[in-house]
Every structure is written in structure tokens, then in C-alpha cells.
Design a protein around this nucleic acid. Structure first.
Lengths: 219, 219
DNA sequence: TCACGCAGAATATGATCAAATTTTCCGGAG
DNA sequence: CTCCGGAAAATTTGATCATATTCTGCGTGA
């Protein structure tokens, strides 16, 4: 068919991967509101991609629980009810303290330093009331910590959980601002520095409980 | 384009869903060996489906961890190393006992009866040395139990874990037969009947530990 | 109120392009 | 003369797109 428009194949990364990462961030950091419908053609226009890559990215996100596939082939951002939130809390408490304990086991001074830097940036974001930045740094803190746990399967499970409450967390922060967001990362950093798995697990559980309680209060 | 063959659109279920379920079962019950490459075009011929539905099903399975996407756009059945198996064990122990406890909370006589029926069928499969049937009934027992827990998110997580060790479990059973497969479901049924969450959780943990130990021994 | 059709969106197909693996073939070293 | 790399053709496989087909939802009119 001669001169097919043929956008120059971007870089090495496939289009469906690029769309997936973009959409993932949109969910994770609350650029999409809970309940908001997500259409293929809408994404095709907005992200300027083909239909097939968008389709595949959506399929992947729904498989991870980041998006909700209604029976009648519509897709929407999940709305959390109290029961779902309770489940998410139980799952996080079951998994994330174990990751923190693993990370504590072979923690290094350099790693603690990196985490402390992220936590400082997080504090500054809170002080400035920069909600978006807070969400990013908070996620980066946990993602980095999980990376140190060297447990890809457990980490994948937890990443999926974060995708599920990302949109709702954004709503909470949008309502209350960053005022009431004391971070419990200080105890955690202390436990990590001491390479104390049990203390790290306990601190992580406290952080999770507090964060989820915050979401629960906003129903 | 005139006379395209036009396969009669099956029933209400979409093609990609049908392909997904089929592939999921193939992974779950070990019809695919660990390490075996999975190609799109191969599935297209074998399952007699279009390319797009197969693609989407594969994307979904890889997102769930049931299949492994190598860097160079190839897909294969994951091979478990000891580290991965240890992670899977930790994840199962973190999650499945909690599901058992939830199921125990509002257990009914009818539900226990259903589970006992499945367990009987499981015993008969062991006695006959019917590996395939054993795997199916064992999965059905746990799936049914998880259904009673009424916790869709936790159940989805656990289903993903089962997909990860399905192929390897099949290998183990294929090697050793059903001889050394005593099922720990008796204690579990007893605890469920008594509606004792803690006892159910403990029994489930024992079942998980034994099952994973079996896989570990085969490396 | 309910049936019917119409618009719009999702699903599925086959063609086409790009990338990676496999095969083949050749030259040099032993 | 045989055998072992290594490069390049050839084949297989994956990615993307344009398009046809089907389904869902909604508005319209009886």
C-alpha cells in the first residue's frame, strides 16, 4: 500500500510497553479518578498510539487489577468499597512487612542513605503541600525498599496492590492536602539502619495501617 | 471482502476470553512444561483462533506471572529456581491461611459437605494414581475454599501464585506418581467444620508447606 | 411500556513490517 | 582433509495497522 503514514518506530521499546507504562503511572498517581470510564479510542487519541497497543496495555492493566473490566465490555477505574479496602489492607499487611524484613537483612549504609534522600524529598513535598510530588516520592521510597528485598515475585504482588488503591489515595490527598500526612518512615529507616528485620516489619506494618486508615476515613 | 470464511461467532464469550481460559488451564495443570517456549503462531494453529485473541490472552497470562516474557520478545513457561520457590512459599503462607481463616468464619454444613465431596474424589484419584485428576480436584478444593472466603482480591493474588507453580507441580507428580501425596485436607476440614479460624489457618499453612516442600525436593 | 433500529465502540481478521533466531556457507587453523 | 568459528542469507516469529464485523446502549416511535 505504498506510503503508509508509518510513524517512525519510536525507540527500541515497543509501543504497547510505552502505553502500558504511561497508563500505569496515570492509575498509580491518580491522574484517573475512581469510577472514570476508560475507552480504547479515547486513549488512542490522547496517547497518540495505535489501537492494538492500547488494547494490549488495557488487557494487562485489567489483569493486574489496576482497571476494572465490567461484564459489558467497558473498562473503568475501580471504585473501592470498604470491603475491598479491608482486603487490600490485609494483603498489604501480609506482604509488605515481609519485604521490609528481607530488605533489612542485607541493608547497607549506601542504601539507607539513598532511602533517606528520598524521604527528605518526601518531607519537602509535604511541607510545600505538593501532593503530586508527595505521591511520587512516597511510591519511590517503597519501590526502592522493595527492590532491596530482592524478591521479584513478592514485589510484583505488592505493586499490583498499590495500583488498586492509587486512584483513591490521590482523592484523599486532594481533599485533605498534605497536612495530615506524617510519614512513618523514620522508624523504618532506623530499623533498616540497624538491620533489624523484626523492627523493620513492625514499622512497615504501622506505615501501612496508617495509610490505609487514611483512605478508609474518606470512605 | 466478500466470502471471508467468517467463523460463526461462538457463544456470548469473546474469543480472547476462551483462549485465555484454555491457556490458563494448560499452565495450571501442567500441559505445558517449564521452560517450554510459547509462540503466538503456534497457539493460533493449535487453538484454531485468530492472532489478536491469542496475543491478548498471552499478555494477560504474562501479567499474572503465569508466563514469562523474555527480553527478546519471546514468551516461555517459567522455570522455578529455589529462590523463586522460596518466595512463592512465603507468599502462599502469608496469604492462604488468612483465606482459610476467613472461610472458616462463616462456614456452613452444606459447604463443608461440598468440600468433603471434592476431597473424597481427590482421595480416589490418588488411590488410582490418576495424576491429572488429582491436580484438578486439589485445585478445585482450594478454589472452592477460597470462594467461601468471599475475598476477591486476596483470591486473585493466590490464583496468580498457583499459576506460577502449576507447571512444576505437574512435573513432580509425573515423576513420583501420586504415592507420596498424603493430603492434609482432613485437619483443614475438621477446623472448618468447627468454624475455628486459627485452626483452619494452621492446617492450611501445613498443607502449603508440605506441597511446596515436595516441589523443592525435585529442585 | 416495549420493540426496533441506529450510532458508536469493541472485537477480530489478515496483511504488512520489523526483529531475532536459525541455517548455511566459506575460509582458515590444526 | 577435517573441523571450528563467524558472517550473511533465509526463515520463523512478533508487532502494528487498516479494516471488517459484531455487540451494546440508547433514543425513537408505536
Amino acid at each position: 500500500m505504498g506510503e503508509t503514514a508509518v510513524a517512525v518506530t519510536g525507540a527500541g521499546i515497543p509501543a504497547h510497553e510505552r502505553v502500558y507504562r504511561r497508563l500505569r503511572d496515570m492509575v498509580l498517581f491518580g491522574e484517573l479518578a475512581p469510577g472514570q470510564p476508560v475507552t480504547i479510542q479515547g486513549l488512542v487519541e490522547e496517547l497518540d498510539a495505535g489501537m492494538t497497543p492500547v488494547r494490549e496495555a488495557l488487557r494487562r492493566l485489567t489483569a493486574e487489577g489496576a482497571l476494572d473490566a465490567m461484564g459489558n465490555r467497558r473498562i473503568a477505574v475501580p471504585v473501592l468499597d470498604p470491603a475491598a479496602l479491608e482486603e487490600l489492607t490485609e494483603a498489604r499487611i501480609a506482604l509488605e512487612p515481609r519485604l521490609a524484613a528481607r530488605a533489612a537483612r542485607d541493608m547497607t549504609a549506601e542504601r539507607v542513605g539513598g532511602l533517606r534522600d528520598i524521604d527528605d524529598a518526601l518531607d519537602r513535598a509535604i511541607a510545600r503541600g505538593d501532593v503530586g510530588r508527595y505521591l511520587h516520592e512516597n511510591h519511590r521510597f517503597h519501590a526502592e525498599l522493595n527492590r532491596f528485598a530482592d524478591a521479584p515475585i513478592l514485589t510484583a504482588l505488592v505493586d499490583g496492590l498499590w495500583l488498586r488503591f492509587g486512584p483513591s489515595l490521590r482523592v484523599v490527598c486532594g481533599q485533605t492536602g498534605t497536612r495530615n500526612l506524617p510519614d512513618r518512615h523514620k522508624d523504618l529507616l532506623h530499623a533498616l539502619e540497624a538491620r533489624d528485620p523484626d523492627a523493620a516489619a513492625a514499622a512497615m506494618q504501622a506505615d501501612v495501617e496508617q495509610g490505609m486508615e487514611l483512605i478508609l476515613q474518606s470512605l
